[in-house]
C-alpha cells in the first residue's frame, strides 16, 4: 500500500505517494529524476548515495522513503548557489578532485556537512569526515586539498 509523504528536497516541497519498500535513493533517482545521487552498492558500503537529511549526511540507500516523511533533504542538485557553483564545488573543479565523478556528489555533501560543523578542519578531520565515501580514482589527495581550499575560502 502506498503512503503519501511530504518532504522538502533542496528547498522545494514534494508530496509523493510511495510504497514502503522504496528507498529514499530510489525515490530521488527513479521517481523524482534527481539522478545526481548515485547508486554504487545499495547497501551502505560506498557513500555514492550520500544526501544530507535534517543536516546530517546519510546513505540514502539505507533510508526508506517513508522514513523521510517530513524531513529536509539536500541532494547534490541543491548545492549550487544563485551565484553558480558552491565554493566546495568550485574547489573540486579547480583542484582536480574530480575524475570519474561517481563519488563526487557524495564527497561534496560529506564535505559540506563537515565544513558547516567545523569550518577549519584539520587534514585528519577532513579524512575522517570523508571516510564513508569511497573513491577508486583519485587516491583522495586532491579531494582533501579541495576541501581544505574551500574551507579557507569559506571562512
Amino acid at each position: 500500500m502506498k503512503r503519501l509523504i511530504t518532504l522538502t528536497i533542496n528547498g522545494k516541497e514534494y508530496e509523493v505517494a510511495v510504497p514502503p519498500n522504496l528507498t529514499l535513493l530510489d525515490l530521488l533517482r527513479y521517481e523524482l529524476g534527481l539522478t545526481g545521487t548515485k547508486k554504487g552498492c545499495d547497501v551502505g558500503d560506498c557513500g555514492a548515495c550520500t544526501v544530507i537529511m535534517d543536516g546530517k549526511p546519510v546513505n540514502s540507500c539505507l533510508v526508506l522513503a517513508v522514513q523521510a516523511d517530513g524531513r529536509d533533504i539536500l541532494t547534490i542538485e541543491g548545492v549550487e548557489t544563485e551565484e553558480g557553483l558552491h565554493p566546495i564545488q568550485q574547489a573540486f573543479v579547480e583542484k582536480g578532485a574530480v575524475q570519474c565523478g561517481f563519488c563526487t556528489p557524495g564527497m561534496i555533501l560529506s564535505a559540506k556537512s563537515l565544513l558547516e560543523r567545523n569550518p577549519r578542519p584539520t587534514e585528519e578531520e577532513i579524512r575522517t569526515a570523508l571516510s564513508g565515501n569511497l573513491c577508486r580514482c583519485t587516491g583522495y589527495q586532491k579531494i582533501v586539498e579541495a576541501v581544505k581550499d574551500a574551507s579557507e575560502k569559506l571562512s
Binding site: R29, T35, Q89, F92
Partner: peptide
Amino acid sequence: KRAPRLDAPDKSTGRAKYVDD
C-alpha cells in the same frame, strides 16, 4: 599547465549523466 577538467562542473553538480541516470 593546470587545466580544470571539461566535465568537472557537470560532475560536481550532479548534471553529468551516467547510463543508469
